[in-house]
Computed example of a mutant assay.
Amino acid sequence: DKYIWQFVNGRQINDHIRIPEEIHAQTPLSVKISADLKQRGFKFVGPVIIYSFMQAIGLINDHEIECIYNPG
């Protein structure tokens, strides 16, 4: 986990989404992580897949502000 959390200095990113149009499929950070993994020999780790992974592991919180599942 140290590898992946180094990209956010160990802190979750909170996007504070207000409207659905602000939801991303990828971000500059997911592009950066994807490129780093590809340099290390990984395949099938494009920016969209990495962004989904970031959501799944809690690296990023992009729930809408009004969502009942938004912890913060």
Rank of each mutant, 00 (worst) to 15 (best):
residue 1 D to A: 12
residue 1 D to W: 12
residue 1 D to S: 10
residue 2 K to T: 15
residue 2 K to A: 15
residue 3 Y to V: 09
residue 3 Y to D: 13
residue 4 I to E: 04
residue 4 I to D: 03
residue 6 Q to S: 12
residue 7 F to Q: 00
residue 7 F to N: 07
residue 8 V to H: 03
residue 8 V to A: 09
residue 8 V to C: 06
residue 8 V to M: 00
residue 9 N to Y: 10
residue 9 N to W: 06
residue 9 N to M: 10
residue 10 G to A: 09
residue 10 G to M: 14
residue 12 Q to L: 11
residue 13 I to S: 04
residue 14 N to P: 06
residue 14 N to K: 12
residue 15 D to R: 12
residue 15 D to G: 02
residue 15 D to P: 04
residue 17 I to V: 15
residue 18 R to S: 08
residue 18 R to Y: 04
residue 19 I to V: 14
residue 20 P to F: 11
residue 20 P to A: 11
residue 21 E to C: 05
residue 22 E to Y: 04
residue 22 E to I: 13
residue 22 E to K: 04
residue 24 H to Q: 04
residue 24 H to V: 02
residue 25 A to M: 08
residue 25 A to D: 04
residue 26 Q to F: 05
residue 26 Q to W: 09
residue 27 T to P: 01
residue 27 T to I: 00
residue 27 T to H: 02
residue 28 P to L: 09
residue 28 P to N: 02
residue 29 L to P: 01
residue 30 S to C: 04
residue 30 S to T: 06
residue 30 S to R: 03
residue 31 V to K: 05
residue 31 V to G: 05
residue 34 S to L: 03
residue 35 A to G: 07
residue 35 A to D: 05
residue 35 A to P: 01
residue 35 A to Q: 02
residue 36 D to I: 00
residue 36 D to K: 09
residue 36 D to R: 09
residue 37 L to N: 03
residue 37 L to G: 00
residue 39 Q to I: 14
residue 39 Q to K: 11
residue 39 Q to V: 01
residue 40 R to L: 10
residue 40 R to P: 02
residue 42 F to K: 09
residue 42 F to T: 03
residue 42 F to A: 02
residue 42 F to C: 05
residue 44 F to D: 08
residue 44 F to V: 06
residue 45 V to Y: 01
residue 45 V to L: 01
residue 46 G to R: 00
residue 46 G to P: 08
residue 47 P to E: 10
residue 48 V to W: 07
residue 50 I to Y: 03
residue 51 Y to S: 00
residue 52 S to P: 08
residue 52 S to L: 12
residue 53 F to Q: 06
residue 53 F to I: 11
residue 53 F to N: 07
residue 53 F to W: 06
residue 53 F to Y: 10
residue 53 F to H: 11
residue 54 M to P: 14
residue 55 Q to C: 10
residue 55 Q to L: 13
residue 56 A to Y: 15
residue 56 A to N: 15
residue 57 I to A: 14
residue 58 G to C: 15
residue 59 L to Q: 08
residue 60 I to M: 08
residue 60 I to E: 00
residue 61 N to A: 14
residue 61 N to I: 03
residue 61 N to Y: 12
residue 63 H to C: 12
residue 63 H to L: 12
residue 63 H to K: 12
residue 64 E to Y: 09
residue 64 E to D: 10
residue 65 I to C: 07
residue 65 I to V: 13
residue 65 I to H: 10
residue 65 I to S: 06
residue 66 E to R: 13
residue 66 E to S: 14
residue 66 E to D: 08
residue 68 I to V: 11
residue 68 I to M: 13
residue 68 I to Y: 15
residue 69 Y to T: 07
residue 70 N to I: 03
residue 70 N to H: 14
residue 71 P to S: 11
residue 71 P to G: 05
residue 71 P to Y: 13
residue 71 P to I: 07
residue 72 G to V: 12
